[in-house]
Design a protein around this nucleic acid. Structure first.
Length: 221
DNA sequence: GACCAGGCACATC
DNA sequence: GATGTGCATGGT
């Protein structure tokens, strides 16, 4: 049904930007940490926080698990919301050590739906963060919906503004081939296009999708 | 100085 | 169920 349209959009984005090779991280654990740190935050700031953790030899489950929350908060300070994010990281690590002995690889064998529910039960991990972890750390066939995804697709009249997260996710997952590599690139390309052309209060001249049907008033979303 | 960033939980109506 | 608010640094 919507498959052709979605693949055409994918192709337009891919032609413009090429492969994005996400997630920009060194290993599974770092993907998870980055997914929490990047909540409502510029990735450049997250990189500074991750560098701090690495320089403190703290980018391991054990060292983060035993670290004082105040110390962790100071290390991740550049990523913003550092107190709340330190707690969120701790919540994940408590889960990891309680349920899986602190081994991220042991999540590999858990069925996707079950793992998703376990992640969502952790305070501080919402739908987008859980799905980022599932797709980018565990290669599961889960489409990550974020602000840019909604904004771009709403402006191009492809989704309803009142469609919630799960509706939009279903729209992509049911229309696209069940391919985690495709989901991976697609989301990354939408973020790239969004950063450049789909700001909240700006028109998007030059956007790779500008020839598609388009909502005229960019302030609408 | 204003605006924005790869959200989420919680309060209140 | 919808809507509003706090959380915070750093780049443009």
């Amino acid at each position: 049904m919507e498959t052709d349209k979605l693949m055409r959009i994918y192709q337009l984005l891919y032609d413009r930007y090429g492969p994005q090779k996400w997630w920009p991280a060194d290993g599974r654990f770092e993907v998870i940490i980055g997914a929490i740190l990047t909540q409502n935050t510029n990735w450049k700031n997250v990189e500074k926080a991750i560098l701090n953790l690495k320089q403190a030899n703290a980018m391991t489950p054990t060292s983060l698990h035993i670290m004082e929350p105040e110390c962790l908060a100071q290390l991740i300070r550049p990523a913003g919301y550092y107190n709340i994010k330190a707690q969120r990281l701790k919540n994940f690590l408590n889960f990891l050590f309680t349920e899986y002995d602190g081994e991220v690889d042991r999540l590999e064998t858990i069925p996707t739906d079950q793992l998703r529910n376990q992640l969502l039960a952790i305070k501080g991990i919402g739908a987008e963060t859980a799905d980022s972890i599932l797709l980018y750390a565990y290669n599961r066939e889960v489409f990550v919906v974020d602000t840019y995804t909604c904004r771009i697709f709403f402006r191009h009249l492809l989704i309803e503004p009142e469609g919630g997260y799960e509706q939009v996710r279903y729209f992509f997952e049911s229309s696209l081939p069940d391919d985690s590599d495709l989901f991976n690139e697609y989301h990354a390309l939408l973020v790239q296009a969004g950063k450049e052309y789909c700001k909240p209060k700006a028109k998007c001249n030059g956007c790779p999708l500008e020839k598609l049907p388009h909502e005229i008033d960019p302030l609408a979303y």
